[in-house]
Amino acid sequence: MIRSMTGYGRSQQQLNGWDITVEIKSVNHRYFEFSCRTPRNCAFLEDKLKAQVQSRISRGKVDCYCAIVSTDAGDSAVLVNRALAKSYLAAMRELAEETGVPFEVTLRDLARLPDVFTVERAVPDEEALTAAVQTVAAEALDRFVAMRETEGARLRADIESRSRTISGLTARIEEQSPKTVEAYRERLYQKLSQLLADRSIDDARVLTEAAIFADRIAVDEETVRLRSHLHQLGEILGASDPVGRKLDFLMQELNREANTIGSKAQDAKNAAVVVALKSELEKIREQIQNIE
């Protein structure tokens, strides 16, 4: 199934005393690139989340955000730095005596001083927390992949539509090419008639020149290869594995054939058709840059 490299998924659950939120988003990238933000004491989760995401996708620049809030008050303790508090009090009492300012300190005043009270959280159980986070991440990842698949389906429909347009333009080129040769033969005959006046024209020579011209502008081989590449494009779009890189290569081949056909176009009609064909190819190339 075709997938876009752009996607977003989010999940929030309360599990085992933690309120866990996982967000995953991605944009286009040539390879797989992963960055993750987790709470400071949960860096051990980054490699686990990277492996979990990489098991589902192969390309894209992925950003993962993980927030963990404990819902169990029992895993935290308030610590009092008594020595520091006494030192604050002694310093303030001494300052009051020196300046004559009344010494009036309440517990609230003391609590506001830096580092008198600190909150110490229990070290999380890595195995239990990892299992909980991966459960939440799995749901976020499902939504993330579903969005990439939905966008991928739209990309596939657009590419297939443009492929059909290119096929129709190719048919017009194939139809127009013999007419170009016939028009050249008639122009050559008329020109020789004017130059030679009443002298006879060597019809065999005209036919030979027309044949040489026809061989020079023949695009049969290019259009056959172009149609073969379009058929291959359809097959690749129906594949189940990531196909972005294959499509990149195939677009190079399609453009090569289009450029060759363009270089052989000898009349305005075919030239205009080639321009339209190359425009459709460029639009497909742009869409392919979004495919995993």
Rank of each mutant, 00 (worst) to 15 (best):
M1D: 12
R3L: 10
M5T: 02
M5N: 01
G7S: 03
G9H: 12
R10K: 13
S11Y: 05
N16P: 01
D19R: 11
I20V: 09
T21G: 05
T21H: 07
V22T: 00
V22N: 01
K25Q: 13
H29S: 15
E33S: 12
E33L: 03
S35C: 03
P39D: 10
R40D: 15
F44T: 07
Q52N: 11
R56T: 07
S58T: 15
S58Q: 14
S58R: 10
G60N: 10
C66A: 05
T71G: 02
A73L: 10
D75W: 06
A77Q: 13
V78D: 09
R82G: 11
L84I: 04
E94C: 02
E94H: 10
V101P: 01
V101F: 10
P102T: 06
F103R: 01
T106N: 09
D109N: 14
A111F: 12
P114Y: 11
P114N: 11
F117H: 04
V119G: 03
E120A: 12
E120G: 00
V123S: 11
P124V: 06
E127N: 09
V133S: 03
Q134G: 00
V136G: 09
A137I: 06
L141T: 10
L141N: 08
D142Y: 02
V145T: 06
E151W: 08
G152H: 11
L155C: 07
I159C: 05
R172A: 13
I173F: 07
K179Q: 14
T180Y: 04
T180Q: 12
V181T: 12
E182F: 00
E182R: 08
E186I: 11
R187V: 06
Y189F: 12
S193C: 05
S193G: 14
S193N: 08
I201E: 07
D202C: 07
A204C: 00
A204P: 01
R205C: 06
R205V: 04
V206F: 04
V206P: 03
E209H: 07
A214Y: 08
D215E: 15
T223R: 05
L226R: 00
L230C: 06
L237F: 12
L237H: 10
A239G: 03
S240R: 12
D241W: 02
D241H: 13
P242M: 06
V243Y: 00
V243D: 00
K246L: 11
L247V: 09
D248E: 15
L254V: 09
E257N: 01
A258N: 06
A258T: 05
N259I: 11
G262S: 08
A268R: 04
A268I: 13
N270H: 00
V273S: 08
V275I: 15
A276W: 06
A276K: 09
K283M: 09
I288G: 04
N290A: 05
